[in-house]
Design a protein around this nucleic acid. Structure first.
Length: 270
DNA sequence: AAATTCTCCTGAAGGC
DNA sequence: TGCCTTCAGGAGAATT
């Protein structure tokens, strides 16, 4: 399941193979993604030159001379570079055929999307109200403190809300809260500035460590070269409900916050 | 307005 | 072995 580190790994893997190239052809085998692939996508983008591939939160922006393709991997999406003549497999829904290589989008569950946006790209409704990037200087203690002020929501819900900060998905939210020693159910407005500062740093640490490892492979995630990530072995709480806490040895607790699996240590996280 | 619940989808895993 | 049920979840949309 692609989270920010997986999306960044994908971006870094594919960009060098297609940047600066002309998009010759768009092949849509199945347009039924989260939103339908625009019927006029080919007409909009064919013949244009890809300037760069940018990541914003978990969105991948393919910025052309004019306009951009907005991509999202959803739950099970992946993008990889293939040879022009490689036959598509089941669930390979979209190809972007560039002069030198083909970018192939695969998504069994079809929770992702492939959209078009004319300039300026960031004015698209999906991007316009996103919070700061978690690894940027814009994401700091004062920001999180301001965001949490007066909120009764569970802190885990807040850091997973893309309007407050992008890219902190379920796995890493669990891990960051453990690292910061904060109980995931704790009301956001009732956490001290010092502890929120610690949470900010934990988010940054967990995400950057995962990027270095090439992302977390759960089930079937593979990067743009088809290789898995190696962060899974470093997960402290996610997927470890009932097992011993790394710190205090007590069995980890599992609950649900907003339909998401939440794992934490009752003793270490307050 | 803020918070919670619903929704899309398919493959893996578990139960019998 | 095989069929059935349950679960996982990103994040916008709908609802409370």
């Amino acid at each position: 399941m692609p989270e920010l580190p997986e999306v960044e790994t994908t971006r870094a893997g594919i960009a060098p193979h297609i940047q600066g190239q002309t998009l010759q052809r768009v092949v849509v085998r199945d347009a039924r993604l989260r939103w339908p692939v625009p019927i006029d996508l080919a007409a909009k983008v064919e013949g244009k030159c890809l300037r760069q591939v940018v990541r914003r939160g978990k969105y991948l922006l393919f910025e052309f001379d004019q306009g951009a393709i907005i991509g999202h991997l959803g739950m099970t999406g992946s993008m990889r570079i293939v040879a022009h003549d490689e036959p598509p497999a089941f669930h390979d829904h979209v190809d972007l055929v560039f002069s030198g290589a083909t970018l192939r989008y695969r998504d069994p569950r079809r929770f992702g999307c492939i959209l078009w946006q004319d300039n300026p790209v960031m004015e698209h409704a999906l991007l316009a109200s996103l919070g700061p990037e978690p690894l940027s200087d814009e994401f700091h203690m004062a920001h999180l403190l301001n965001v949490c002020k007066g909120k009764k929501q569970a802190i885990k819900s807040v850091i997973m809300d893309a309007k407050q900060v992008v890219g902190v998905g379920n796995i890493y939210a669990n891990e960051a809260l453990f690292m910061a020693g904060i109980h995931p159910h704790r009301q956001a407005g009732r956490i001290s500035a010092v502890r929120l500062g610690k949470l900010v740093e934990s988010c940054k640490q967990v995400l950057s460590a995962a990027i270095k490892q090439g992302g977390t492979t759960l089930r079937d995630f593979v990067d743009s070269d088809g290789k898995p990530g190696y962060f899974k072995q470093q997960l402290q709480v996610y997927g470890r409900a009932g097992q011993a806490c790394i710190t205090c040895d007590q069995a980890l607790t599992e609950s649900r916050i907003g339909q998401r699996s939440t794992v934490y240590c009752k003793r270490c996280q307050r």
